[in-house]
């Protein structure tokens, strides 16, 4: 078991004043049998406005809020302590929609062909997933700037380059083609200064975390913030506001062993 101290902060800097800002944050990690989170602290600035909690149908805790007054910046900071089993497993069963393709994870011609080339021989769900994970890892090159948040698995695979989100979407697409229930997980990882994304597969009784970007099972260094069928189900920050300008986002995270 690892005991980790985590701190995660996102800043939005607006080029002009924004008002009527409504947001939903999925930044509160939930205890799930693998990770145990001591009451995390969440600070949101500016203080004006109203903030409350909600819950989505995927089981994530949401921080919702509304700021009517004009503001030129926005930040939220979550910190706390997590005890994490040195394991990749958490108990749970998968709702059937986790088997179905989504817009971001539907396999097109190229991914279907790739799946055929790499169709796993093993019967065991975990072994099948391992093999598909390795195939993704070998086929892709980690590179920033080639893809964006709306890039689909098929598109990223065609480019052959991408970031953790793309690795996860491609892996999900192959798993769903194979009939394995799986979901997108978003969170913090030890040794990584930003947020990270990986995949959880379900074997009927457990969720098993696998990180296709590093071709390994997740371990004690991963703190999960939220999950969904794909990225679009569970962005860590989602907001709308009124104003005629741009916003620049900066994300930083720090995970240290206690």
């Amino acid at each position: 078991m690892k005991r980790l101290q985590f701190e995660f902060q996102t800043n939005l800097d607006f080029s002009c004043g924004m008002s009527e800002h409504c947001f939903t944050l999925r930044c509160i990690p939930v205890s799930d049998g693998r990770q145990t989170i001591a009451e995390p602290k969440c600070v949101i600035l500016p203080h004006s406005g109203k903030v409350w909690r909600s819950r989505d149908s995927f089981g994530n805790t949401l921080i919702c809020g509304r700021m009517n007054e004009e503001h030129s910046g926005f930040l939220f900071k979550v910190s706390g302590e997590a005890s994490i089993e040195n394991s990749c497993e958490a108990p749970g069963i998968a709702q059937p929609f986790y088997r179905a393709y989504t817009e971001l994870t539907a396999a097109g011609e190229k991914l279907l062909a790739f799946y055929e080339e790499n169709r796993p021989a093993a019967a065991d769900v975990r072994l099948r997933a391992e093999q598909l994970c390795e195939a993704v890892y070998n086929a892709m090159v980690y590179q920033r700037g080639e893809t964006g948040v709306k890039t689909t698995a098929e598109e990223a695979f065609s480019v052959g380059k991408g970031v953790c989100q793309d690795y996860a979407h491609i892996f999900l697409s192959l798993l769903r083609t194979d009939g394995i229930p799986c979901r997108y997980a978003s969170g913090l990882a030890f040794e990584c200064g930003e947020t990270h994304a990986w995949v959880e597969i379900n074997d009927g009784t457990r969720w098993i975390g696998i990180d296709p970007t590093h071709n390994r099972y997740i371990g004690g260094g991963y703190i999960k913030l939220c999950h969904g069928r794909d990225y679009s189900d569970c962005p860590i920050e989602r907001g709308i506001y009124r104003g005629n300008g741009d916003s620049v986002q900066t994300v930083s995270s720090k995970v240290t062993e206690v």
């Binding site: 409504c22 939903t24 909600s54 819950r55 989505d56 949401l62 919702c64 509304r66 989602r238 709308i240």
Partner: peptide, 22 residues
């Protein structure tokens, strides 16, 4: 609800899905 469905929706009500789910 632009915070649950299409983010570009200008005719929706932010967080109406939270009120509904609750």
């Amino acid at each position: 609800d632009p915070l649950t469905f299409l983010p570009e929706s200008l005719i929706g009500v932010p967080h109406i899905m939270d009120a509904y789910r609750a």
